[in-house]
Design a protein around this nucleic acid. Sequence first.
DNA 1: ACCGCCGGGTGCC
DNA 2: ACCGCCGGGTGCC
Length: 860
Amino acid sequence: MYEEGKEAVRLREKEKLVYKRVGLMFSRRWRFGWDRFTEVDIFAGHNDTSAETLSQAIRAAASEEPDADGSVLFGHLQGTVVGLRYYTGVVNQGEMVGLVRQPQNPYDSNAVMVANVYGCQVGHIKKELAAAMAHVMDNNLAKVEGVVHSGTKNKFTMPVMLSFWGKEENKNAVMESMARRGYKLNTGGMKPLGANQTYSSQGARAMSSKKGVTIALTPEELKNAFDNLFEDLMESKDGEKEAAKSVSTPLLPHQKQALSWMCTRENKSGLPPFWEKRGELYYNSLTCFSAKEIPERVCGGILADDMGLGKTLTTIALILTNFRKGKPLPVETCQEEQSSFVKMASKLKGSSSASDGTGTLCSERPQGSVVCVETPDVVEIKDKSEKSTSKGKTKATKRKASKDAPVMLEDLDFAAALSGSSVDSGLKKKRVSKTEPPTLRADSSISKRGEDSSARTTLIICPLSVLSNWLDQFEQHVHANVKLNVYLYYGSDRNRSKTFLSSQDVVITTYNVLSAEFGNKSPLHAINWLRVVLDEGHVIRNPNALMSKAVLELTAQRRWILSGTPIQNSVKDLWMLLAFLRLKPFDVREWWNRVIQRPVTQGDRAGLQNLQTLVKCITLRRTKSSEVDGRPLVSLPKKTVCVEQVELSQPEREEYELARNEGRNTIGRYVAEGTVLRNYADVLAILMRLRQHCCHPDLLSKTSLDLDAPATPAELRQRLIEKLRMVLASGSDEECSVCLDSVRLPVITHCAHVYCRPCIAQVISTQQDTARCPLCRSEIKISELVEFPQEEMEEENRRTNSENWRTSSKVQALMSNLLRLEAKTAALSVWLSLSSHVSSQYWRLHLESMDSVLCVWMGP
DNA sequence: ACCGCCGGGTGCC
DNA sequence: ACCGCCGGGTGCC
């Protein structure tokens, strides 16, 4: 690669030096990606790996920086990039460059590195200027961005137009600091030379950012634009695709469309948004970056359909239909040992607590909401239906296999509940194997394990609350005689073997498990997944959360985000999604901020247009009111509302009257004081309590409603305990906002937010002296966390034990109606069996037809 | 870099 | 000459 001779040796020595310095820098400052930064990479010159590592490092650095929101432009400065000859990074006319401080540079601790969009180093800022910039950058007074307008072909140095952005209050400090070192920022209206016409040009935007060339959107328009960002995508995406035969549920037309779209997104080789081919090069029209290699395309996207449209089913269909090269997952070519539906799954929290957690449920009658049965050996549950719709060959193989395995017939109701179907669906045969399943399939490409072509597994990550739903849906929508290896990666005895996991068809886990594994020899991060699916993907919108980092570090060929609400608050939420999808170059925060977020928040039309284009390319969204070819997407049966008057029983009536008098007195007091309006929230609370009384008296505690401010610490404590009890009992808010799992060891903060004790303790210890509540930013202390008192806990348990459980008139009326309906409609029975899995601790019924939302704590 | 800078060689014209 | 001048070596931070 290099010529022989003195010059070559000298260059090589220099490069080694550079490598050592860069290495030093990375090893000290950045944790991620270091392992891939090897000597080989840097000597490979244009090698992708070094660039990617740099890119990751820049990304890591950028993510530590505060958001670009609210930044104002301080001014411009013409600077010089030097040392071009030592680096491989090249830039185009008008291209954006990144400026990264290198405090560890042994030659100059003020060094400022210049890198292009892909993170390839272009050069350094000349040292005198770097010294001035270092002060500003290190003290976070300003963020400096650069655009190269000319001299891109230069051998040694090139000019760069720098712009300084930061908080208004830092402006003077920055101007003075730069002036002290002899640099005067240009705040005038002179348009820099060579500025691009698009918004992407730093110079052009800088000039027009306040009020100038572009007509900014009004806040109102901006808000509408956000609201419509996803709504405008509903134009029909062409084509329908039939699901593979292994999918037992027929897809609705809109689901076939979604499947078709998803397959296309996974298989097509087109260029990502804003990339175009220019001669031999690929060119990004927003950043002006170009590359020889075809830009890595995004295999995947965001499925943002409204809830209820079948995102889960469509995803299951995708897994079975689009394996490699557009072919279905090879499930029908059975070999002996792997016939039948193999499923390793066990132990959601509820089941383990209900049955003391051992994995040997097969020998006893299952209790609680056990989703699946695990045995140390092998169990078979009989097929739903003896009449096989699949080929005889499959059936025969399957039979043969089942001879070898111990067979166990399970409780009929239980089996039916598992499948989500009604009782009369018959016996189920299930085969669960604890041994490593054979890895070789009929598909020959699997032989080269470790290469891309060997990836076979889809990893599904979801919140705990929908975990069981995925298992149910797999069982429900996949033909019973199809062998599909679905492994639930959850619970303390989960199989962490890489070989085992990567031989599955599907691995399901939770965000919580994923973060827990992250940085801890995580097998999930060591596997090259065929596909990673983030269910309820909007939960990863905070890029600082460990969970988000864990998700970003997964290796996969295809990536999907399922979410009914992809944007929760602002454009900011989108970044995490794009970063997960690896939509270059926006997966690096800086480019996202520069090209999309800041322009959009400043009301720039072109920026918004770019954002819309971006989102449109990767998202499919339909709502229930969407239409396909003039027909509604889904046709639901008409809703019928039946009002049934239910008489309270005598004891219920007495309790109700008690509460009513109490409430009336309180409100009467407010009226007398003339403070009703000021206390209207309390009035509503009283009314709510009365409605709860009507549903079930146990929804309320025996303690009376005391609306005055707590006078003593003891009173505050009692109040908090009461609130904690309400939260736990209501079932509406049992998730811990830190881990997103069901709350374990619940504690309540003085600001009345409920978390798992370990979770919030962790938060407090990392924030040290001034810890703040993740939900409301109030100051919190370990010593002020309030637990549910043990005796009350026992009291609660006693109250909800089956012997002590009391019903209520309304619950009785509801139950009799439900049972009556269940006999009539299969759909309802499905719903019932699903909701029994919704939560391990509480059975929640949300029925609009009742006076208010009725939350019944029924216990296990 | 068709520069600037450094430092060694050199020294009337 | 403790200078000037010349020309080769050299060159990011």
